[in-house]
Amino acid sequence: MSPHVHSGDSVSKNMRWVIIAMLPAMLWSFYAFGLGAVIVTATSVASCVFFEWAINKFILKNDQCTLCDYSAVVTGILLAFNLPANLPLYIIIIGALFAIGVVKMTFGGLGCNLFNPALAARVFLLISFPVKMTMFPEVGQMTAYADAVTAATPMANLAKTDLLPLFLGNVGGSLGEVSALCLLIGLVILLVTRTITWHIPVSILATVLVLTGLLNIAYPVEVATPWHHLFGGGLMLGAVFMATDYVTSPMTAKGQLIYGFCIGFLTVAIRVFGAYPEGMSFAILIMNAFVPLINNACKPQRFAKEVKK
């Protein structure tokens, strides 16, 4: 059956690029949070991979090895990126079980899930363990894990934080979200290797920039500058790695732009007007639910559409 040649592209290749793109942020988190970051990342990845393997083997009785596509590794790293570096092990394992077992495998595994597994797990943990999930250790405690000194995330007091450390990642926060710079490097890797297209990240970042810019002009005291919003919290992480997840994002360029805009809008709405200082995860999850609708509404530009009535 034609075609008889293939581009050589594969799921695992794409996933490998995602992992490579996540490396800068991961290494930064090791540097910033030391041992704690390593433990959290290792636990998260190991338990995600284990649950994927175990569920496939014992519950679904599927002989196909779905581990080789690295998607569980990606989920594991993404989950770790969303956790503070001093989180107890059992919480991480619960998170991994929720991500893989509930969000991913119950829907049929890779490609069938409605929500981003790592993100859904983060929100699950945030609601289940609100205190532990929002106590972020301070930067620079190389050997600390459970005993790390904690501080509140700069998100709680965004307007008063300095911009440069926020950009570089010298602030408290979840593992992966602190360094906007490293995440931007990741974005460039993803774009250059054509793993993702520019539509989603750019539309999210642009929307946030414009909206917070307007709000900042209107209420200069209450609302932080757009740059604070861009580089602070999980926005960059979400825009680069979470919202661009293949499975849970729309298929067409037009749909992706709408999706990105809505995420940006919801994030700003939650951050500025909502009860939580951080709105990225909720915004993405809400929009995940709308993806099938967006897919139905936004068809690609058909050939010769303008001629058709």
Partner: peptide, 26 residues
């Protein structure tokens, strides 16, 4: 070697086919 088709996996909805289709289909 060339004629072996790769193993079929789940669709990951990456939309690469949508981007490649010259007729603008899905």
């Amino acid at each position: 070697e060339e004629s072996v088709r790769g193993k079929e996996q789940n669709c990951i909805r990456c939309a690469k086919c949508v981007g490649a289709c010259p007729m603008g289909l899905e």
